[in-house]
Simulated assay, not measured.
Amino acid sequence: MNIIEHNQNGLVYLAADGFEAAGGVAHGFSTRLGGVSDGIYTSLNLGMNRGDDPDKVKENYRRFCAAIGADLKGVVCASQVHGDTVRPVTTADLGIGLDEGEPWQADGLVTDIPGVVLTVFTADCLPILLYDPVRRVVGAVHAGWRGTALGIVTRAVERMVDCYGCDRLDILAAIGPGISKCCFETHEDVPNAMTESMGASALHCIQVLPTGKFHVDLKALNAKRLEGAGLAPEHIAVSADCTSCLPEKYWSHRYTHGQRGSQAAMIALL
């Protein structure tokens, strides 16, 4: 399974070909290309609380949802706190859209309700989308290094199995664009957190630098988490794009020192 790039009238986004082949789902990972924002937010900023003009952000949402085939009125998101809480979205949550504050904290969302557009926001952290085309269940995960160490993507798979009866071998996963090993330079706290959580299996995803710092491969660590959760390796797609390497294409918190917009990753059952 692969991550492929689409250009819809100048709006560039990424999608998993395996999701598209399975059908029945709308999904996409945004870039910063194809929106109407300007200044430091040029152009497709989907961050609602970054200081951008709200009307321009709403237009960006309209364009992105139209490009991927999702219903803007169905958008549901959460307050992301770099934890491992995964929340099932129910009919009681419908109507939580862009004009309301997120009523709960979670870094993962799962649902089996058609039309609900699960949404997570990133600007170096990893967006991970999950889809079971058999049981018709979707998930969206925000995984920074803390969430990776906590195993949030594993929690999301477990929620899909426990709440909706998914078979792990039916679940497809797409790890979207985020900071890659080449640019994610850290102190020892990050690799320590990974080895404490995942043991020696994390070591091949960590490189010691001559400076005494480390390069950490969050994409490989989350792919390993997904395989450990029971997913078939061929059902896991990983974007090669590094948000920090490609600042003209993606928002990167590290590259811009926080002066930025946000990407969004969305998924919805049709």
Results as ranks from 00 to 15, higher is better:
183 C>P: 02
258 G>F: 08
6 H>L: 02
80 Q>E: 15
202 A>C: 14
146 R>P: 12
245 C>N: 12
31 T>A: 09
22 A>K: 05
125 C>Y: 02
24 G>F: 01
262 S>C: 10
120 V>G: 09
25 V>S: 05
33 L>N: 05
146 R>S: 15
85 T>H: 10
98 L>I: 13
10 G>A: 06
231 L>V: 06
151 G>V: 06
245 C>I: 04
258 G>I: 10
92 A>R: 14
180 S>T: 08
41 Y>G: 02
237 A>M: 08
241 D>K: 06
211 T>L: 12
138 V>W: 04
259 Q>W: 09
226 L>I: 08
66 A>I: 04
114 P>T: 07
204 H>N: 11
14 L>N: 04
169 L>D: 13
68 I>G: 04
23 G>I: 04
146 R>W: 13
175 I>E: 03
136 R>K: 12
140 A>H: 04
6 H>A: 00
82 H>W: 08
251 W>H: 10
256 T>G: 05
262 S>P: 09
226 L>W: 07
224 K>W: 11
117 V>H: 07
4 I>G: 00
242 C>S: 01
258 G>Y: 10
25 V>W: 10
58 K>R: 15
161 V>Y: 09
264 A>P: 01
216 V>D: 03
241 D>E: 14
132 D>K: 03
82 H>P: 04
267 I>E: 03
251 W>A: 05
232 A>R: 15
83 G>M: 05
161 V>E: 05
71 D>C: 11
174 A>H: 03
250 Y>C: 01
178 G>P: 08
22 A>V: 00
213 K>R: 15
89 V>R: 10
97 G>E: 10
180 S>P: 08
198 M>C: 12
74 G>D: 01
224 K>M: 14
82 H>M: 14
228 G>H: 05
141 V>C: 13
50 R>G: 05
203 L>N: 15
201 S>Y: 12
145 W>T: 12
46 L>Q: 01
8 Q>V: 10
54 P>Q: 01
19 F>M: 08
57 V>R: 00
6 H>I: 02
110 V>N: 04
70 A>I: 01
113 I>E: 07
15 A>I: 03
142 H>K: 07
55 D>I: 01
7 N>E: 02
229 A>I: 09
210 P>I: 03
214 F>I: 00
110 V>Q: 07
182 C>W: 14
194 M>E: 11
199 G>P: 02
80 Q>D: 05
76 V>G: 00
102 E>Q: 14
98 L>G: 10
2 N>D: 02
75 V>N: 07
244 S>G: 10
147 G>S: 13
63 R>Q: 06
51 G>R: 08
193 A>K: 11
90 T>E: 14
262 S>H: 12
131 Y>F: 14
4 I>T: 04
250 Y>S: 06
130 L>M: 12
146 R>F: 11
214 F>E: 05
108 G>C: 04
